[in-house]
Design a protein around this nucleic acid. Structure first.
Lengths: 328, 328
DNA sequence: CTGAAAGCGCTTACAG
DNA sequence: CTGAAAGCGCTTACAG
């Protein structure tokens, strides 16, 4: 409960100046006499001193905090990316602050303001919503990084993730190759710019937009389930469904099971993400694997790299892979 | 990329002192003349000024950051609690930093040091590991809060969560009431002090420790699956299994399915947590509901309440509930 | 209703 | 190898 000791307390106790103590704690110990080092170490230890990140940040005009904004932290794929990023950042001496936008534009803008207040080293957005505030920040700060979903048209900022258009295209072509019919694309909310890249790719892949039934959906099991119920009850057919993520696919599958339909005989289902739950919950699901664990290192690299390249929209494109299993 | 504007820039542009600008931004606008307010507002807006949390924190000797340490951020129940806490803290003007200990004592201690460096307002631990560093911090800082698992013997700090012993007891009694036999308790890792409270309660509930087969397990589906395979293959029986969490129960169930066993006829399974995935993935699972969404408000309240009560180990005990469904 | 000034905990260029 | 001193962006008691 007592006030934490400061650098001055350590300096006093070890009989040196605060400059020396500071050097010790900021990794410049090689210019200090061994005896001095020892006395500083002792003093710090006996006081239980930990340098204040706040003092440090103020002085250096830069914090060691990276803010990550996610639409839904309880989504498993999102959480995997967050964990990967957190761990990679830790490796380069940064901390990550996680915050939920709840898919809400105002909430996002409020969090962006907070991140600015914290003087975040970088702001990583998973599934950003296109708002004026966002555009303003990208333009004036240049420390925003888009993950998993490309920024909207006209926003120039680094992107880390797969090429969603190419992935959609590959799925579309696979549908053609297999001779699937009755195409359905359940795609993500339209306010996620970039979420449509998968859809556009898919449509290109099958080659005929007019024959694709497009349904807009939240990224949840619930939403997938409801779409499926409506579809399977109103116009039952052997559909070939491309889902915007695995959660939607789970929901769709459950509705199919309830109707005694089998994959792939009565229904074809293709997911997206290959989130780690699949192995346990949906080993039957054919899906596009997005390498969640590669996001951390890529983003860390982007943050570490000297500024000159930060504003130029350079991106790190990760590889995707079609995981063909039972459902398609 | 340019340096963000400071309070001085705003003061200069609006022709007032930094004191006045500061008052405006720290909610003391009622002592400022309306015309002055307006000019400050204009100036701040045109400069795109956001007050620096760093400067503010240094001056006030207190940050608005709360650090939450979790053993595994990809666990759904953990994530639900984290989201609940983040949202409640946001409501009282605080941000949450999330960090993973990965069930690793050294990692935890490193993160605790980081939290101290950030001068965190509070540190919330979900599933803390008992280390000397942890004990030292509890004693000297008094801003640690234990969530979901009680602190170990001799650590006096506030706790938020259910009464795990009582919950285990209720499950044990339920087993007796139903006449279940062949009791198995798959409990969490022993280094989670407090994780054994559920086990102890359960043992008390059934009333005969010698007849409970106790298996130590990680909190994962994988671990639950492996325990089940071993058990069901080596000594097949109609077991009645109390799992330390729902994940373990999922894994156990899968192994049972693979062997064509049915719940509750061939096997009784009882979970713990009632994580939100159950509704979709395991609607058959009988489990103990822990109210994940009530953690946020409770923890926020603890943090807001004036210090006097902080060190005295006062706790907020949340209600649990047996959710009886198909599997038991 | 407003301002001048001190000081929160650090780091670093400069001087020795 | 070491120290004195300035200054990072704020807030607030004090004075007017």
């Amino acid at each position: 409960m007592t006030k934490p000791p400061t650098i001055r307390d350590v300096a006093r106790l070890s009989g040196v100046s605060t400059a020396t103590v500071s050097r010790y704690f900021s990794g410049k110990a090689d210019t200090i006499a061994p005896r001095t080092i020892e006395s500083v170490r002792q003093a710090a230890k006996s006081l239980g001193y930990t340098p204040s990140e706040i003092g440090r940040s103020l002085r250096l005009a830069q914090s060691r905090v990276v803010v990550m904004l996610v639409p839904d932290a309880t989504n498993h794929f999102t959480a995997d990316i967050a964990v990967s990023v957190e761990s990679a950042l830790k490796g380069i001496g940064l901390s990550m602050v996680l915050a939920n936008t709840g898919e809400n534009a105002e909430q996002q803008d409020r969090l962006l303001a907070d991140a600015q207040g914290l003087r975040a080293r970088a702001i990583v957005l998973q599934g950003a919503i296109d708002t004026p505030r966002l555009r303003e920040l990208v333009a004036t700060q240049g420390n925003l990084i888009f993950a998993n979903r490309r920024p909207a048209q006209g926003i120039v900022a680094p992107y880390v993730g797969i090429d969603n258009f190419q992935a959609g295209l590959a799925v579309g072509r696979y549908f053609i190759e297999r001779g699937y019919e009755n195409w359905v694309a359940i795609h993500g909310p339209r306010h996620y710019f970039g979420s449509t890249a998968r859809l556009d790719g898919f449509v290109s892949g099958v080659g005929d937009a007019s024959r694709v039934l497009q349904l807009e959906s939240l990224y949840t099991m619930q939403a997938g389930y409801e779409h499926a119920c409506r579809l399977l009850d109103l116009a039952p057919k052997k559909y070939s469904v491309f889902c915007a993520n695995d959660m939607i696919a789970y929901g769709f599958y459950r509705a199919a099971m309830e109707r005694n339909l089998r994959v792939p005989d009565d229904l074809v289902i293709f997911g997206f993400d290959d989130n780690r739950l699949n192995e346990w919950l949906a080993p039957w699901l054919t899906t596009v694997k997005v390498p969640a664990l590669e996001f951390g290192p890529a983003i860390a690299k982007l943050i570490e790299t000297p500024k000159p390249g930060f504003e130029d929209g350079r991106s790190i494109i990760l590889p995707f892979e079609l995981k063909v299993r039972q459902s398609a």
